[in-house]
Design a protein around this nucleic acid. Structure first.
Lengths: 235, 235
DNA sequence: CGATTAGTTGAAGCAGTTCAAGAGTGGTGG
DNA sequence: CCACCACTCTTGAACTGCTTCAACTAATCG
């Protein structure tokens, strides 16, 4: 985990929040300039390499994170060691909401692609929230978004045949995007998302490639045949 | 399919929140007597029979509900008509949080057992929230609780063999309760919770009964052998 | 350049599905 | 009050899709 903005830059970090390219869609969207002046704690930025952890389940954290770019997986474990990926988080999503309630992190948060995040203390959110009811509104929106995602994972990605699940996952990855191109991740991760084995994930992807539903532009970067994938997903 | 009872028919009186038996654990826990004086809209209580809907996915609702007793299922549908139960809600849980964000209901909410709920307008929560930051705290707790439940359903109830899933579901139903007795629901619902067919759910329950892991005290009311079920759940 | 890791493919086995039929239960009406 | 219907639960038997185990290839990296 490489720290790209040091504590020393906290003040310019403040300015960064004001000028943040993501500001309209980010947690602090509703804040005024005067509010930002009250941010004394540093807001650090981190650049996370694929495979690196942002935090681990059970960690007593006091920080929330906003994803600037890239993608992370949230992983939970069963007592028998089995793991399950319960959600993916992408740009503008917030991680670690549970720390606002003094809970420990509920998942391992691990980068799948090169990822940039901003880190800020839970206390900061609580302080700002006192005078900014709008911040609570933003928080509720994020919580609900996470919940909707969680429900969708259950209905879409844990129901039906492996073919259907893979197709639905692929479609999900390009949703809200203009292109039908998308980077993929390891077959093992795909299996852990869909509740199938690595081999099944691999076989299904390989089959889709042979059928021309996927074209591999470069290693693990695919072009999707959306209409036909949609047909598979819904049948 | 059981005939739907309209909410009008299920009305069982206006609630007196001040004297509510559940008040310490309910959404309005932190409010003062003076706050309750501001509640002009009636908070109605409803009694819902098993199989009746509280609301349906897509309904434009303006109401939240607190469960007083009983149990409801939250159901989502796939385009192919397949359904999946994504959560169960019980006493002190809140339903319809999404209406606070002006979203439509995301699920069908259907009673599994005889159920009592209190209904209150989203607007009321928004109004009270303006002067009671504590109410937001309570809301966040409920949202996080729902999210934790959703994640657990994925890792516990949609992973592993049918035997494991059924065992985990049963254990979940008696968690936080002093007895090891628990009412069950239809095999069809169990299947929809676990992502297996009705037959598999039935076979597994029948097998557990034969093995003495379950004792049927009365129809669909069981006594659990918790230690041995736990062994099955975790292996 | 050899060593490690991720992906692919094959073959065998099995858990869960599918389809079908019978048993148990509750409700309705003649 | 019993006969009948509707519905859920259970069980059987055949099938199949996924897993398991294993081998091999392709890519990555010190």
């Amino acid at each position: 985990m490489i720290k790209t903005v040091s504590l020393r830059d906290a003040w310019s970090g403040e300015a960064n929040c004001l000028d943040c390219a993501l500001r309209v869609s980010v947690l602090f969207a509703g804040l005024q300039e005067s509010d930002f002046a009250r941010i004394h704690d540093p807001i650090d930025q981190f650049r996370i390499k694929p495979g690196a952890h942002l935090y681990l389940a059970g960690d007593a954290g006091e920080y929330l994170f906003t994803v600037r770019s890239g993608m992370l997986k949230l992983v939970q474990y069963l007592p028998d060691g089995n793991q399950r990926i319960v959600r993916l988080v992408r740009a503008t999503d917030v991680l670690g909401l549970e720390t606002l309630l003094d809970e420990r992190y509920q998942h391992d948060a691990t980068a799948l692609h090169p990822t940039e995040v901003c880190r800020f203390p839970a206390r900061l959110v609580r302080d700002l929230g006192r005078d900014n009811p709008g911040l609570y509104q933003e928080l509720m929106v994020r919580w609900q978004r996470a919940l909707t995602e969680a429900d969708a994972w259950l209905t879409e990605l844990s129901t039906g045949s492996a073919r259907q699940r893979v197709a639905r996952l692929l479609l999900r990855l390009v949703r809200d995007r203009q292109t039908s191109e998308c980077p993929l991740f390891s077959r093992e991760d795909m299996g852990a998302m869909l509740g199938v084995t690595t081999e099944t994930a691999s076989r299904t992807i390989a089959e889709f490639k042979r059928q021309g539903l996927l074209v591999e532009k470069s290693p693990n970067f695919f072009l999707l045949d959306i209409p036909n994938l949609r047909r598979i997903a819904e049948v």
